[in-house]
Design a binder for these strands. Sequence first.
DNA 1: TTAGGGTTAG
Length: 706
Amino acid sequence: MEIPLLCYRSVSLDQIRSSCSLPSSVSDYRCFIKQKTLSSVYRFSLNRRKWRNPFAKIRCCSLHRGLQPRPKPKPSKFDADVEEETDLRDTQIKKPSARVCSQLEKLVLYGRYREALELFEIFEQYGGFDMGSSTYDALVSACIGLRSIPGVKRVFNYMMSNGFEPDQYMRNRILLMHVKCGMMIHARKWFDEMHERNLVSWNTIIAGHVDTGDYVEAFRLFLIMWEEFSDAGSRTFATMIQASAGLGLISAGKQLHSCTLKMGVGDDIFVSCALIDMYSKCGSIEDAHYVFDEMPEKTTVGWNTIIAGYALHGYSEEALDMYYDMRDSGVRMDHFTFSIIVRICARLASLDYAKQAHAALVRHGFGSDIVANTALVDFYSKWGRIEDARNVFNKMPCKNVISWNALIAGYGNHGRGDDAIELFELMLRQRMRPNHVTFLAVLSACSYSGLSEHGWEIFQAMGRDYTVKPRAMHYACMIELLGREGLLDEAFALIRGAPFKPTANMWAALLTACRVHQNLELGKFAAEKLYGMEPEKLNNYIVLLNIYNSSGKLKEAAAVIQTLRRKGLRMLPACSWIEVNKVTNVFHSGDKSHAQRKEIYQKVDYLMKEIAKHGYVPENKTLLPDVDEQEQRILSYHSEKLAIAFGLINTPYWVPLQIVQGHRLCSDCHKAIELIAMVTRREIVVKDASRFHHFKDGNCSCGDYW
DNA sequence: TTAGGGTTAG
């Protein structure tokens, strides 16, 4: 049951009870009291029937169960005075005064941050007015709420130039303002110059480094803190456990875990959730589950984290089971839950599950949630239902750059480059700022659809008009685009003109283009660059091998095969699957194990002939050593064509791989097997490991054993 | 006394 937002001049238990039903098992709710200092958190004890914090003079209070996104304050029928508050801006105000300060604070109180910063202009114009801590605090909240860098600069400059002397509390708030707006250089300078730092100051700066992905610096600071400050709280540990997860350092995470136990904060909810996340991200789902089991109170976030952990490991079935357990336990599910579930359904490639998740999401009131809907857009477009994706997208009440990117990428993947560009232009018209992922999606779409001119224009406009500096992946995309058009010299010039060292992806794009357009010289040059960078990547050798083969250079081709044999490189088979009549069917390249393989390949042959009648010439691009002619023929069929064929035949499926017993496998191979076991929902018998990874002498050559 | 922490989408 969703508890509505309540606004009271004073809050009584009866008022709460009359407006919402609270589960009797829960005795204590967090209340966010909107006071002068905004996000102050107090606790309202239903047992004691009073506010725990005796200092709180409650002017206005919002009570909710932590639902996200945080609801906007709105006039409540319980409080007539709030009606008066709806028009907070007095347009007659021209000069700074205590009254304006009060109005500014009220605007922030109601989440109208933009208007608050507009009102602040009056102070900036006149200058010299000492606003007092509470108004500065409100301005800090406005900047944090908007994540506005110009806002931070304005407020900070005003404070400094008007002689404001912040106390410890305000110094920490100023630090937080810089941290939350991503201004880590300024934040760090401010922190370094603080003559007195308390636990909050340390936690704030460390969390800032973790948020920006600078985990090493976070650890460095943590160690200094540990030495200088001789203290750390549960919040510090939760943050540092997050940093361990970011670095994938399970050893550090375990040390922190033992510290929390020694210091008696091991049961802290935040610490537990961070631990679950850390263990699952570091590959130990068992430890994650152990921490989850030990949690004294299993919260929504705890459930979400463990479900996401299972999903991360490919245990989608288990994750769904956990989701059902969560539902049965009566814990509130939030938009995080549904975002995770949608992603799991996408992984299971099951339209049925996804539709159920979509329905549950709407049923639980998260039908307009931005993250869950973006996940749905992505899912539907990947599933091939681009129109459904568009429908979800159109119905979204608010969209962010990620939502736009998901649909643009969807159109690109469906070969609908024009639609992708149209959507991109619509995005610009709606004043949504594109980021580097947007440009990647648009450029890929241009590349797939052969829209080289559009692509080139957009690539040039990126840095010039949108201040998004092209990265290596954008260059690789452009090289692919030019390469498809046969503009190999231009593509090569782009590599040479790049303002950074060309990456393997860029050379690979050029090499592929050289194969398609039979440019032996340039292809060889690109391949040699690639060998230096990725000596163990099979595909690079295969592409060069094909160039030599198709241009009749059999001697050179034989040399490449020799190199491959010497390095012990073998093909890692690709795998695809399709759901027919609620049964998932899995296929590998060259897979001959299906019970109805004869009918399937007959159908494929028939389809290929039909396609050929319409002028399609199959590209004989895969020429592998050690693969017989029959298998070559099968390999040349794209898995989608197999799927088309198979869609016409209703039958249970059969099995993908076989690996010799007694061989040791590396973790990558294990993951591959688990994936297939998960998709097929059957046990996999391993008979022949040679189809996996860098198989050599009966073992994986990487030496990273499970 | 106020301030700082954990899970999701491209």
